[in-house]
Computed example of a mutant assay.
Amino acid sequence: MESDKNSEEFYDKLRIQLEDTSAWPSVYLYKFIVLTNKSKIIQIHAIFDNMGAVINTKESKNGKYTSVSVNVKMADPNAVIAKYKRVGKEVDGVISL
């Protein structure tokens, strides 16, 4: 339960930073790292499907990990955080940067 509290504190701080530093709606850059696995990358693509997102992937030097960058126009900080939470819930082992 402690990690849930820490997560909520993290998201509360992120929400404040986003409100203070951007005018909304705004283009936001998400960055994720997953083990190189086509199904995990497809899951991330599906979460941002039909949003006009520009998604780029790059494998690590040894091919074990893949970074996924998503540029997408978001309505507000709450929408940004909702996507982070959805990716974290649906994509096993994802690291959000």
Rank of each mutant, 00 (worst) to 15 (best):
D92K: 13
D49T: 07
K89R: 11
K83W: 00
Q17H: 14
G52L: 03
F48Y: 08
V70F: 03
I47Q: 09
P77D: 05
V27L: 10
A46D: 09
A82C: 11
V27E: 15
S7C: 13
T21A: 08
I41N: 08
D76T: 10
N37D: 13
V91W: 05
M1S: 01
Q43C: 09
P77N: 09
S96E: 04
K58W: 14
L97N: 03
N37C: 12
S96C: 11
M51L: 14
V27Y: 12
N37W: 01
T36I: 04
V34P: 00
S7A: 15
H45Q: 04
V70I: 07
V91M: 07
V72D: 00
N50Q: 11
E8H: 00
Q17A: 11
K5A: 03
D76A: 06
I95Q: 01
T36K: 06
I95W: 05
S3Y: 01
K38D: 14
N6W: 03
V94D: 01
S26P: 07
A79S: 12
G52V: 04
R15A: 06
K58C: 03
I55H: 08
S26W: 00
F10T: 11
N56R: 05
K58V: 01
W24Q: 04
H45M: 04
L18E: 08
V87S: 01
L97S: 03
K38C: 13
S7V: 10
I55K: 03
S3F: 01
N50T: 11
R86T: 15
I55A: 05
M74W: 04
I42D: 14
T21K: 12
K89W: 10
F48G: 05
Y28V: 14
N62R: 12
N62F: 10
L18Y: 15
T21L: 11
V87I: 11
I41Q: 12
F10H: 02
I44R: 01
D92S: 11
T66I: 07
D4Q: 07
K38H: 14
M51G: 02
N50A: 10
G63C: 07
I81P: 01
N62T: 10
V80R: 04
N56V: 05
D20T: 07
L97H: 04
K38R: 14
N71F: 12
I33T: 15
N50K: 14
S69D: 08
K73P: 09
V54I: 15
Y30S: 04
M51C: 02
K83D: 05
S60Y: 02
N56T: 11
S60M: 02
G93A: 02
W24Y: 01
S96P: 07
M74V: 05
L35I: 10
S67M: 12
K40M: 13
A53H: 05
G63P: 05
N78C: 06
L97Q: 02
F48M: 11
S7R: 15
N37T: 04
